[in-house]
């Protein structure tokens, strides 16, 4: 579905960004990307989403539907002049065909549809952004640390929400995260980046069936492995 070959995107004379990345992602797969701060994870998502065309190498996206790519940014990026409801509907072409209230409920903002972003907490704003991405029903969803601004409890709820959506729509997802447990809970495969510019430092498959038990001992073993890879760097 998505194939990246020897892709590089560097800044500062090759001292930042990412370099020589190659990987492939199957349809319906959830892939996590872990890595230290500044190793080019956000840059990679920008390249994949088409926002940044200044890369080298090959990126092939196959057989995409009408709504190819959705993205949840590291920040909420809401339009301050639109209410929560209008923000969620921002990219929707036919506004009557969708049920906003359903998405408001989904992210726990049923009472806040008519509030402006200035009246939201950071976590609520991020949840609005999540609803905005989900309502487009994209076939590929790119997520840049989507839950890092949320409390542990909401985070878990939304992780389960992603799992549900993934199961219903078999969305292909690429999740950038700093949270190893989150990656282990959600992903079929984890890519570990490191260095500046970032390169692929390790790969890891997780075959366990979802939903997984957060305290699973196999996952704990994998976590140790990941920590190992991150520490070598």
């Amino acid at each position: 579905m998505l194939k990246v070959e020897n892709a590089s995107r560097t800044f500062n004379n090759g001292l930042a960004g990412f370099k020589d990345l190659s990987f492939a992602i199957q349809e319906g797969e959830t892939v996590g990307i872990l890595g230290t701060s500044g190793c080019g994870k956000s840059t990679l998502l920008r390249v994949l989403s088409g926002l940044d065309a200044g890369f080298e190498g090959d990126i092939v996206l196959a057989s995409l539907g009408e709504r190819p790519i959705g993205m949840i940014f590291q920040e909420p990026r809401l339009m301050p002049w639109l209410t929560v409801k209008e923000n969620i509907l921002f990219g929707v072409k036919d506004k009557k065909s969708v049920d906003v209230q359903e998405y408001l409920n989904l992210v726990g903002l049923s009472e806040f549809g008519n509030h402006f972003p200035k009246d939201l907490s950071g976590g609520m704003a991020q949840r609005t952004a999540i609803a905005r991405a989900l309502i487009g029903e994209p076939s590929v969803l790119l997520l840049d640390e989507p839950f890092s601004a949320l409390d542990a409890f909401t985070k878990m709820q939304l992780q389960d929400l992603l799992l549900e959506i993934q199961e219903i729509r078999s969305t292909t997802m690429i999740i950038v995260t700093h949270d190893i447990d989150e990656a282990l809970y959600l992903c079929d495969r984890i890519l570990i980046l490191g260095g500046q510019p970032g390169r692929l430092e390790g790969k890891l498959s997780i075959e366990e069936a979802k939903p997984r038990d957060r305290g699973d001992s196999n996952l704990a073993a994998k976590k140790a492995k990941i920590l190992d890879v991150l520490h070598i760097e």
Partner: peptide, 10 residues
């Protein structure tokens, strides 16, 4: 620019 990028994504 970040808001304009949201438009680009859509």
């Amino acid at each position: 620019r970040k808001l304009i990028e949201v438009g680009k994504i859509h």
